[in-house]
Design a protein around this nucleic acid. Sequence first.
DNA 1: TTGTAGGCGTTATCAT
DNA 2: ATGATAACGCCTACAA
Lengths: 345, 345
Amino acid sequence: MKYTIKDVADRAGVSIATVSRVINGSSVVSEKSRQKVMEAIEELDFKPSQIARNLVMQTSNTIGVIVPALSNQFTGGILNGIEEKTSSCGYDILVGGTGGDVERERRYLELFQERHVAGIIFMGWQLKPQTVNVINSISVPVVMMNRNASGLKVPTVSIDNFRASYQMTKYLIEKGHRKIAFFRNSVDIDACGVEQYSGFERALAEAGMEIDRSLVKYGEFSEERSYQLMSELIRQENIPTAVFATSDIMAIGAANAIKDSGMDVPGDVSVVGFNDVEMASLYRPALTVIHQPLFAMGEEAVKMILDSRNKDGSGMENDGRIVMLPHKLVQRDSCRSIPVEEEGK
Amino acid sequence: MKYTIKDVADRAGVSIATVSRVINGSSVVSEKSRQKVMEAIEELDFKPSQIARNLVMQTSNTIGVIVPALSNQFTGGILNGIEEKTSSCGYDILVGGTGGDVERERRYLELFQERHVAGIIFMGWQLKPQTVNVINSISVPVVMMNRNASGLKVPTVSIDNFRASYQMTKYLIEKGHRKIAFFRNSVDIDACGVEQYSGFERALAEAGMEIDRSLVKYGEFSEERSYQLMSELIRQENIPTAVFATSDIMAIGAANAIKDSGMDVPGDVSVVGFNDVEMASLYRPALTVIHQPLFAMGEEAVKMILDSRNKDGSGMENDGRIVMLPHKLVQRDSCRSIPVEEEGK
DNA sequence: TTGTAGGCGTTATCAT
DNA sequence: ATGATAACGCCTACAA
């Protein structure tokens, strides 16, 4: 059915070694042999078995990517970057979706090792201690995306979440907002979330403002939850002038709750997001957000894996360093500035 | 570094054959041996090499998925279904992003063959003749997602695009719309697009309405393009009472153009979409759309590949059959009904 | 420059 | 029930 290197050798009247040489461009082969081999390959439409090659080479020019969900513009943006970089480097990508389930995370981590991937890029909603353990004990390079946890021995790529959050909060304050709700992601240990919250706190503190506990909520990365949370606030008539959500999807949830209750965004309450997925600019009013360079982050992660592999086979240097890429605040239409005379109302 | 089956055998004091047997649960092994082997595996944290296994088995319990873009809720929804099904069947998935580029499509098609995937699921924005040729000449089972072309010799899974479009158009007409714009995807040969258009035509014809050529446009699957198209219509004051876009993203583009021009959706013009990606229900007004069972479609595609593989190794039965899954029309808030007295205005 | 042969980690077929 | 051993398709010294 499928031809092997031997068939090509026979047809070209040379040995399999020669065929192998022309395929890999290695060593020197006479122009004549090369010609014959090429022809034979062409005629047979021969494709070398990556599997056999990987077996002898002890690696698979494949990198594994583990994500919570495939249908998600955040992970999607990163995946695009990963795809671009891997494909231009001759690597293929193996993906696994976990739904955030620890057991499935572990399974994919193992599966990918069994497949001898060159490295693994890991994304999760939260980082459970169990997962951290598995990751730390893995024998191939792993890089973590956008999430961090103490005790994690692998590098991670993300933005400076503290500064990003600080900057956005400050922006809100400068716009005259004094009653700001903060919708964070999850309650679980998640260094990024903690940093985002710190940034929020700091900016408030610097402005001499006190933080209103009744306005910080956990949106669990979900539109529904965020919608619910915002609706409650409205029902309680504890309405902020602005809500800062640490994911666009939560921002949209809040905005929808506001709109559906008959109020206007940003007329009545401003809403700002985080990440800048495609939806953020498509929504109306277009969301003012912190932009994360998703594509570049994906590329960077691949680069790190490939680099570590060029140095030595012993995985990453076992460092928990974190590579930060530049974010930016992009102003759109979901945040209004409150005139001074209105402030006291 | 990594242990092999031989290390396990030594440690357990048995032969590699026995180890292999307990790993695969095949044949009968004495309980004593099984115990020892299990222990050895445990102690060494041994993981069998999928690569070696694949080599001897001549297959890779991997399926390849080719998509135009990873950051896309449509492909994402399908990918989720594919992931679920493959992972529950012990398969892994290899993905390739093409950006719709023919050359990259061809490359991934080849790459995946070289990796001996069990099958390939293909998605593209359009289906160019070149790609059709490559696909027809491939030696592993291929299933096409949601797109079709004459001369294609592989099965495809999709919904009944003709009926879906017909149904939506009819719905619009029943709501009192008489001036309906139709934003289709691309000009390229794309059986699905053609069917959608036929459905639109038919519904109009049955209602005794004539089709207004100035209102059928090609949105190229893009929000920008659709936005542009709608803006032009507005500038020309050739404003329909409803626009039917064959993708949600285009629907949003149109809706945004309408809103940004100061008009209201659906107050001034209704907008309906197609696919029902996440954004469709998050957008405000929530979009009335044709819902495609993305997840189920992904599952079905995997099922087809796995089935064909159980029957015989010679690929699919070379049929261009198309498996249709049920769609549905979901009403939300982006389409209003026009009272009779208004109709004549 | 080219060919021979050993080995990569498994599975599977024989014997035993 | 278990153990040699021959594939699987390819790469790579080592020889010629």
